[in-house]
């Protein structure tokens, strides 16, 4: 008899424990406003990212198509994966000295190798590069992941050494 009472007690307790869990599930089922899920491709207009969000490396250009990269290779040395490669060219400094000078020809950035660790941004002494908020990187062609960050015809901003 004692066994029977204990048995029925356990069954009742079990049912109540299951009921309390199911009640919570049911609560959220009937209150869809308390659900936080966002439907990603549909919420592009309202999507907000933090200002420090790390999307991809970009070389900032101003309206005169000038950038601040002196080609010091600090970022290239700081990168753990060899993502950045800076190619030089010799340009003649016509306005002042008329001597030949080194300047960047191509700022090559392999997006496929980048781990977005932010070390290059911190290493840059002239704040020439920064992280953009663009995070949709998928492409059909792997070649398109190798990018040249300096725009064609761009040159070094005056006063940046």
């Amino acid at each position: 008899m004692k066994f029977l009472i204990e048995y029925i007690g356990t069954v009742l307790k079990s049912i109540s424990s299951l009921w309390s869990g199911m009640r919570l599930t049911g609560y959220y089922f009937t209150h869809p406003k308390e659900i936080h899920t966002q439907q990603y491709p549909d919420n592009r207009a309202t999507l907000t990212l933090g200002e420090r969000f790390r999307g991809e490396v970009v070389l900032t250009h101003d309206e005169n198509n000038e950038h601040k990269c002196t080609g010091c290779t600090s970022c290239e040395l700081a990168c753990p994966n060899g993502t950045i490669k800076i190619v030089y060219k010799n340009v003649v400094d016509e306005e002042e000295t008329g001597k030949k000078k080194k300047a960047i020809d191509e700022f090559v950035y392999h997006l496929g190798m980048c781990t977005f660790c932010n070390l290059c941004i911190i290493a840059c002494p002239t704040d020439a590069i920064k992280m953009s908020h663009d995070f949709e990187h998928s492409t059909f062609d792997r070649k398109s992941l190798t990018k040249i960050l300096n725009k064609p015809g761009s040159k070094l901003m005056k006063g940046v050494e």
């Binding site: 990212l49 933090g50 200002e51 420090r52 969000f53 790390r54 781990t115 977005f116 660790c117 932010n118 992280m131």
Partner: peptide, 9 residues
Amino acid sequence: DETCGSRLT
């Protein structure tokens, strides 16, 4: 995301 710039790593 806000402080470190990244969510997982």
